[in-house]
Amino acid sequence: MSVTYLEAIREAQAKLLREDDRVFIYGQDIAGKFGGAFKATKGLAEQFPGRVLNTPISEDAMVGTAIGAAMEGMRPIVEMQFADFSSIALNQILNNAGTQFWRTQTPCPITVRLPSGGTKGSGPFHSQSMEGIYSHYPGLVVLTPATVEDAYTMLIDAVAIDDPVIYCEHKYLYYHLKADALPTEKLPIGKARVVRPGRDLSIVTNSAMVHEALAVAQQFSAEGIEIEVVDLRSVKPLDTDTVLASVARTGRLLCVGEAFPWGGVTAEVIARVASEGFHLLDAAPARINAKDTPIPYHPNLWSEHRPNAKTIAAKARQVLQE
């Protein structure tokens, strides 16, 4: 038996619906036999009648409704059809969900699933990585699972958290990642994971870029250069300790992110390391992100727009040579 990243998300939701009456799923095209644009809820509406509900094309109201239900004691999961469309719901997520506990002491335990990141041919409006925007605002927990195991355990944990959680699932990983079975152990939310130990350079990254970084690390290993790869897992809270410990081992830092380059996760990691771990660095910290243009449609352009094994390797070499 093997399980894909997408199946892990579906299984996590099935478990949540089975074990917790407070859980319901709310989103576009997720019910009936259809089961969602990516089939992340396939079969669940039939298995759990009345708890997997199709919504109108109303991202703002989908999240607003989830907020109300969460404040009333439910544990709604909102599926955005694509992360990109969650921009319509920014107001509800940032200003209503994100401020609710601070203002009224009423927990707002919604989980918003964002099918994120680029795939070939998806273009400017079906490819975005929005974890940086959500992390910028207070009151939210922002997760970016990069493995089948994390996709499963972090979604279950997300729903248990009393705060609004933005769960960024990477669409490229849906079918490309497979594990032998669903996990029986987990790392807690808020902890980063060293996915490959190394000595010469730390690559700190998240989501699908973890796999690009691992490919680069593998390639450098053949030359006797050992790259340590840190998967942030949770963008907010950010596990600064694990990052600093890695930089303490290697003395060099490269941050890799699929999001746009201005600000964001890579900038935040570098800011923290520069201000708290400057003495640990043997070279200037570097970062590589997508280009500062909308995400292109054509595969030739798209593969150059996002960081890839080639551009990451070139950047890594620069940092190593400094």
């Binding site: 109303s58 703002d60 109201a61 989908m62 999240v63 607003g64 409704t65 989830a66 907020i67 109300g68 239900a69 969460a70 404040m71 009333e72 709604p76 107001n91 509800q92 200003n95 209503n96």
Partner: peptide
């Protein structure tokens, strides 16, 4: 913004 919250 509060309309849909009431709905929820």
């Amino acid at each position: 913004a509060m309309v849909s919250v009431v709905v929820g």
